[in-house]
Design a protein around this nucleic acid. Sequence first.
RNA 1: GGCUAGGUGGCAGAAUGGUCAUGCAGCGGCCUGCAAAGCCGUGUAAGCCGGUUCGAUUCCGGCCCUAGCCUCCA
Length: 463
Amino acid sequence: MLQIYNSLTNRKEPFQPIMPGKVRMYVCGMTVYDYCHLGHARAMVVFDMVVRYLRAQGYEVTYVRNITDIDDKIIRRAAELGVSVQELTERFIRAMHEDAAALGVLPPDHEPRATESIDGMIAMIQKLIDEGYAYVADNGDVYYAVSRFPEYGKLSGKRIEDLRAGARIEPGEAKRDPLDFARWKAAKPGEPSWPSPWGEGRPGWHIECSVMSTACLGNHFDIHGGGVDLKFPHHENEIAQSEAATGEKFVNVWMHNGHVRVDDEKMSKSLGNFFTVREILAKYRAEQVRYFLLASHYRGPLNYTAEALENAGSALERLYLALRGLDSQQPADLQAEPLYYERFTAAMDDDFNTPAALAVLHHLAREINRRRQTDPLAAARLGAILRELGGMLGLLQDDPERFLRAGGSGTGLSDDEIEALLERRRQARADRNFAEADRIRDELKAQGVIIEDGPQGTTWRRT
RNA sequence: GGCUAGGUGGCAGAAUGGUCAUGCAGCGGCCUGCAAAGCCGUGUAAGCCGGUUCGAUUCCGGCCCUAGCCUCCA
């Protein structure tokens, strides 16, 4: 039975979909004004893993991940770069899709954009005004009246009094209460704007997620995810808006992934200590990065270090080495070796414990290596299971030989050149000229090629 | 200051009231012409102080420390 840690109740709960066999899930995507950094990548990979596992367990999943393509930072960035808001957002949406694909992140079923949901936002804001949850201020802004929603703070565990003590009102705002937040911002000159019953303007943050999620998934759905930094105020405000507007419970299970850190500090744009996915992929293999992201539990912090990335690469290489040379035509019969499948499932059912699930993959690799000489058929069957379970994590889907020969760092030698050197070495070994054979091996090693002499001949891989 | 996580071996990182995590690195052995890969074996642990218990890394309390949120953020 799948247990998921619910941020709303702060404990693990058995997962019960609203509609049997179906899961409706929404995850907050990016605000597209720059390239994805590793923190964004973590969120994408973590929830991709969740979707893959749910599907592998037989659930029919509808997965929505939005794009926020209008907000203050986007407007500012476009102005800085001297391009239109649309040019800017298109550029970074394309980049985000490239990064996601590289990391093995499947496209969501729906990817709504804020700018395509303005009508829905206006409708929801109007509803909030009609119901008394929002008001039009003197300056033309529309604010949500937090005091009207008694359950405000239930997700983040905050009390309204505490929040009010630290809250402040920015110049130019016309809130009745410091906690109130803008739902519609009156247009300023030169900014993108849309017509509304309250005049030209643009939506405030938070409303787009309430609108896009309920539009795609209904007023009440199963899972809502995002980084922990969105818990407050973003998700708190989403609940306040959605439940006030629809009168229904919004989301059953809230899932929050932990931060990526650098030197024990949160990786973030404002601290400037971030690494973009592009920078990282220039140095490390995409699947290695994915392994790294899944090698610690999704709710915990994840420290970014070169050592950890290299460690992930070695661990992944071990799994591919186990798969190399096996008969890949064997079907994956998970029930044939129930021990591994049961342990894998037990790990994943425990709030998506991917580190424990990866340990099961390594147990499989060891068993394959033990048996590959004495019982190749059994080894191949275990290999099929290893690939199948790896697939549930979005790993091990590459051809092992291809993966190992590709290596991480580029080498100057082409495949043909390597093969030619290996042929010369074969001859040298046949002549028992080991000095020459070793010289060629050292030459290859200097070029980043590791060779292995086995019973079936010599194999090679790039480091 | 308020709220929330957490402090595990050389590093990363799980589970667990008494027995193996796992990976990387180390050491010994096997295999190999020598390597590599692999297999076998092995060492290293639980922030500090109390308490509960036959027994605690695991439960409870206090303290110390770290991170996050409280303002834009995945």
